[in-house]
Simulated scan of single mutants.
Amino acid sequence: MDNFKEIFATYGVDYDATLRRFAGNMALYLRVLGMLPNDKSLEKLGAAIDSGDLDNAFEAAHTLKGVAGNLGLTPLCEAVHTIVEPLRAREKRSDYVELYTAVQAEYQKAEAFVETLKSIHQI
């Protein structure tokens, strides 16, 4: 499991805190983590931002933040946090596309984290 700890640390996941959320059950964590690519929140967020729908953008961002937080994907959670708070307040801003682009970039890193784990453990 030391290899797992190194992979988690490289991405920015607190291994111990994350595994505590899953009652120390790595198999459960890996199974749930493997579902991340099926979550459509990122796509919904992008579509809502493109259409200027702040209500649906907030809902999608809030969901994605919760998913990332529960999975211990701290870098992704932090990236989403930067967009979810102004959306919560329904702030009219001109930088939502840039904030979304930063979330997309971090999401890609999270996907790479998942793929790395898949390469050493079947999830």
Rank of each mutant, 00 (worst) to 15 (best):
V97Q: 15
D55T: 15
A57F: 11
G72T: 09
Y96K: 04
A48S: 10
Q108C: 03
V67N: 03
E85I: 13
T82R: 10
S119E: 14
L99I: 08
T63R: 11
A60G: 05
V97S: 13
D2Y: 04
G52Y: 09
S94C: 07
G46A: 10
K44Q: 15
R21T: 00
Q104W: 01
A23I: 02
H121L: 03
L73C: 10
A27D: 15
N3R: 12
T116I: 06
H121V: 03
G24V: 03
A79Y: 11
A17T: 02
E111P: 02
L42R: 09
T63N: 14
L99V: 06
L87I: 11
I123K: 01
E91V: 06
D53L: 05
D2S: 12
A9K: 10
T10P: 00
L73E: 01
A47K: 15
G34V: 05
V13L: 09
T74F: 11
G69A: 09
A48C: 05
A105C: 06
G69P: 07
A61K: 10
Y96E: 02
M1Q: 12
C77D: 13
K40N: 15
I120Y: 07
N70V: 00
D95H: 04
A68H: 04
E43T: 13
F4A: 07
E91M: 11
L99E: 06
L45M: 10
A9C: 02
H62I: 07
P86L: 13
S41Y: 04
G46W: 04
D39S: 08
R21C: 00
P75S: 09
L87F: 11
D53T: 05
G24Q: 07
Y11R: 01
H62P: 09
D53I: 05
M35R: 08
A89R: 14
Y96S: 04
L33F: 03
L87H: 13
V32K: 00
Y96F: 14
E115S: 13
E78P: 08
R21D: 00
A17Y: 00
N38G: 13
G52A: 04
N38C: 09
E59H: 14
A102L: 11
E85R: 11
P37I: 04
V80E: 04
I49P: 01
G46K: 11
N56C: 02
A112F: 02
E43R: 09
L64R: 03
A68K: 07
K65R: 14
K92N: 10
A102R: 14
V32H: 00
R20F: 01
E78I: 08
K5V: 06
A102S: 09
E85V: 15
G34L: 04
L54M: 12
A60H: 10
V13W: 00
D53W: 08
A110L: 05
E6S: 12
